[in-house]
Every structure is written in structure tokens, then in C-alpha cells.
Amino acid sequence: MPWLRAGARDAQPFTVGNRRIYVLPTRFGLFVGLALAVLNLGSLNYNNNAALLLGFVVISLCNNALIAGHLSLLGLRLRTQSAAPVFAGQTLQLPVLIESAKPDGRQLLLEHGEARCALALDAAERRSLLPIAAERRGWQDIDRVTVSTHHPLGLARAWCHLNLHERALVYPAPRGKPLPMQTPAADGGIGRSARDRSDQPHHLREYRSGDARKQIAWKASARTGQLQVREYERASADELLLDWRDLPHLDYEARIAQLTLWVLEAERRQRRYALQLPGVRIAADSGAEHRHQCLQALALMPHG
């Protein structure tokens, strides 16, 4: 229903204010309220002043418990961080940071749909990971996170919504046969003479995340003030081509799963590889950034 959807995105860090806190009685709270109503009606009927006094004292305690639940959330500062990509079927871990001026150990509950995570505010800043099931490849929307508490007596639930409107990337689940030992070269040829890793480097380039430390040219880096990496010329036969067109016997999603597995295996073997998809070609390379680029392209393929 439209009125249940998340509102406008909240700026972070988000401070919980009076107008964002909701309080409603729990089942236990409703039972206590019903019991107090029966007690007071019976006391009035039998003109029992002691019972009336007891009833009103308990009612005042329950009212204070509702106010305490509201104050448990008031003033909290909430921040979230981006969830790291995972494979379909795994669990996204959304980092949530909660700051409180009074770390008194009260219990809070973080929720997103069916995902739940309990924590105790026993420090000025508390970091928790909210586990969110990732069942389908592609972008997964995280519209909002709910922070709630039953503090102090469990008579009522106080909660607040943090509107995120963020997305987390879910890679396809890797499935299929292992990477063949004989794979087409990235340029479509059969290889050419080239230097091996043990020979002199072909040229130097700037350091990229995922490059091996043994490739860093320390002397050249000291001269320039920036990390330089030795780039070796390789035989094209050492560059793999992971091609969508080589899997005509598989259906649409099975091709994506198979190429995902091959990307992971090529990276594990420290091979340079290119990826050919319908309308998309990613040039041969290796490393963490290249792996992410290939897996993201597979994850964002249109759903068949």
C-alpha cells in the first residue's frame, strides 16, 4: 500500500526526533490494560478504596513505561554504510552505527522486512550488521531500516523508521562446469611470441588495486612519488576469452551462472581474461577491480 512505503531519503547521520517515534501497546500491554480495567471496575462496584489506589498506582507505572520507551529512542544518531556485494543465495551484511548519549545497555531491534538483528546499547557508539537475504542477482533495494524497542517493561513497542533508498549489488550464483584448460585467446588467435614473467618488464604503469606487491617497481616509485607497477607483455594465448556465444546449449540464467564461475576460477588461477556478453565486451585484465567489473556486468544482465 502506498502509505506504507518509505518516505523521502533521510540525511545521515540521522537524529531521531519526537515526530519520528511511534508507540503502540504490545499484546502483553493490552492484557495488562484489560486486567487494570477489570480491577478498577470491580473496585468501584464494591467501593474498595485500597484496590482503587492499587489500580491507579499501576496505571501510573504503565504510563511512565510508555514514556520511557519513547525516550529510549529519542536522540539516537543512526548511520548506515554500504553493504559489500554478495552472490545470490548469500546474505547481505548492512552495517548500521548507532550513537547514544546514554549507553545504559537497553535492548534495541533492527529490522528490514524479515531481517532482524538485536543489540544492546552498552557503548557510546554501537556497530551492528543487519543480515538481509539476497535471493536474486542484480540491484537489491533497501528502502528503510526500522529501529524498535520494548524497553523497559515490554508493555509497548516504540519504533522509528530510517529511510535509506539505497541499493546493494548481488552477483549471480556461480554454477556449472569447471573452467576448461583449453580456452580461446582473448584476441581470437592462437598466441604469439612474448616475454614471460621472468623477463624484463615491457613498461611501467600506475598501481591499481589488486596488483601483486612483487610487481611494484620500488625504485621507479621512489623517483616519481607514486607507486609504479611493472607491466609484462604476455602471450595472447595466456589471455582467456569467456564468451557468451560459447554456451549455446545452456539456457539464459545458466549461461550467466556458468560465466560467473569461470570468472572466479580465472581470477583464482591469476589469469588475464576478457568477458564477451551480448552488447558488452570487457577487455582482458585481472585483479579485484576487473573481477568486480565482470561480475557486475553479469549481475546486471536483463532478467530473461
Results as ranks from 00 to 15, higher is better:
8 A>Q: 05
9 R>N: 09
11 A>M: 09
13 P>F: 05
14 F>W: 11
14 F>N: 03
25 P>Y: 13
30 L>M: 08
39 L>W: 02
39 L>R: 04
40 N>M: 12
54 L>C: 15
54 L>M: 15
55 G>V: 11
60 S>Q: 14
60 S>P: 09
61 L>T: 09
73 L>A: 05
75 G>L: 05
83 A>L: 09
90 Q>C: 14
93 Q>T: 08
98 I>D: 13
102 K>H: 08
108 L>K: 02
114 E>I: 00
119 L>S: 02
120 A>I: 02
121 L>A: 00
123 A>P: 10
125 E>K: 14
126 R>D: 06
129 L>V: 06
132 I>Y: 01
132 I>C: 04
137 R>I: 09
139 W>F: 07
139 W>L: 00
139 W>K: 06
143 D>F: 01
148 S>M: 05
149 T>L: 08
158 A>I: 07
160 C>D: 00
165 H>N: 12
172 P>W: 06
175 R>F: 06
178 P>H: 06
179 L>H: 04
181 M>E: 07
182 Q>M: 04
185 A>I: 04
190 I>F: 13
190 I>M: 10
192 R>D: 14
193 S>P: 01
204 L>W: 08
211 D>A: 03
212 A>M: 04
215 Q>P: 00
216 I>V: 13
217 A>G: 08
218 W>L: 14
220 A>K: 06
222 A>F: 03
226 Q>M: 11
227 L>T: 01
232 Y>Q: 03
233 E>W: 03
233 E>R: 09
239 E>Q: 12
250 L>W: 01
251 D>R: 04
251 D>K: 01
258 Q>W: 00
260 T>Y: 01
263 V>D: 03
264 L>P: 10
265 E>C: 07
266 A>R: 11
267 E>W: 02
273 Y>G: 07
280 V>L: 09
285 D>P: 02
287 G>Y: 00
293 Q>V: 00
293 Q>R: 02
296 Q>M: 14
299 A>Q: 04
304 G>L: 01
